[in-house]
């Protein structure tokens, strides 16, 4: 962990879903600027819920979450939307591109939404992600790996302070997975943003600066390699 002030901090965060089942209990963690953190855990351990809370997609029941100095607990729906628009970017397992927009439009979309479109930067990202030859293509015409590269490009083009990625390579084969991860890590490190990445893969987790593990809604020691 670096000594810089945390970009993302969770203090004693808890979340219970309707029906009374606790999903997260007493989670405290930090992500510093420029730091890449992997979050692993078995299915149902609360990884995606934690990511939703950090990304201002959902509200915690207890504890405090601060993103880039702003406490999420004091924000209404509009404030959360602004947070997602201006400081955070999300990359999903299902890509979640806009199917009726082409690659160029998808890439620039989040930045346009945030009101800070930078064509040169978007163009550079497209080049680094190998998408320049596909700028006029629609998502349905791309492979899964290409679609995820567009999703990463869309997130990075918005120059977020914090990137949250939920199983970004979960739908990709091993080769594509490696390539996408390389590109994402390269862009994150160059931009100075923080990254919290949810994954099932220990191999991916090992490539990041820090590795956290969730078990039954609580942070737990990272399992030994042979147990995964």
């Amino acid at each position: 962990m670096t000594d810089a002030p945390a970009l993302l901090s969770l203090d004693d965060v808890a979340k219970t879903y309707p029906g009374g089942r606790p999903v997260l209990q007493g989670v405290t963690m930090r992500v510093a600027p420029g730091e890449t953190v992997a979050l692993t855990g078995e299915s149902g351990s609360g990884k995606s819920t934690l990511l939703n809370l950090a990304g201002a997609l959902d509200a915690a029941d207890a504890g405090e979450i601060v993103v880039d100095g702003v406490s999420l607990s004091g924000l209404d729906d509009a404030g959360r939307a602004r947070m997602r628009r201006e400081r955070v970017a999300l990359v999903f397992q299902q890509f979640n591109l806009i199917p009726s927009m082409d690659v160029a439009q998808n890439l620039a979309f989040h930045a346009r939404l945030a009101g800070r479109e930078d064509r040169a930067w978007t163009d550079e990202i497209a080049g680094r992600l190998g998408l320049r030859d596909h700028m006029g293509a629609y998502p349905e015409q791309l492979s899964g790996g290409q679609q995820q590269r567009v999703a990463i490009g869309r997130a990075m083009a918005a120059r977020p302070r914090l990137l949250l990625a939920d199983e970004p390579t979960g739908n990709l084969d091993e080769t594509a997975s490696e390539a996408v991860l390389d590109l994402m890590l390269g862009l994150v490190r160059d931009s100075g943003a923080g990254l919290l990445l949810v994954t099932h893969s220990m191999a991916i987790a090992r490539r990041l600066d820090r590795h956290l593990h969730l078990s039954r809604g609580r942070l737990a020691p990272v399992p030994a390699p042979e147990s995964t």
């Binding site: 990304g55 997609l57 729906d77 509009a78 939307a81 602004r82 947070m83 997602r84 628009r85 201006e86 970017a89 999300l90 999903f92 979640n96 591109l97 806009i98 199917p99 009726s100 979309f109 989040h110 939404l113 945030a114």
Partner: peptide, 15 residues
């Protein structure tokens, strides 16, 4: 619906 959910995830207010 999918697109609208994506728009909201990217920070577009529902209203």
């Amino acid at each position: 619906r999918g697109m609208i959910r994506t728009l909201r995830a990217l920070g577009a207010p529902l209203g």
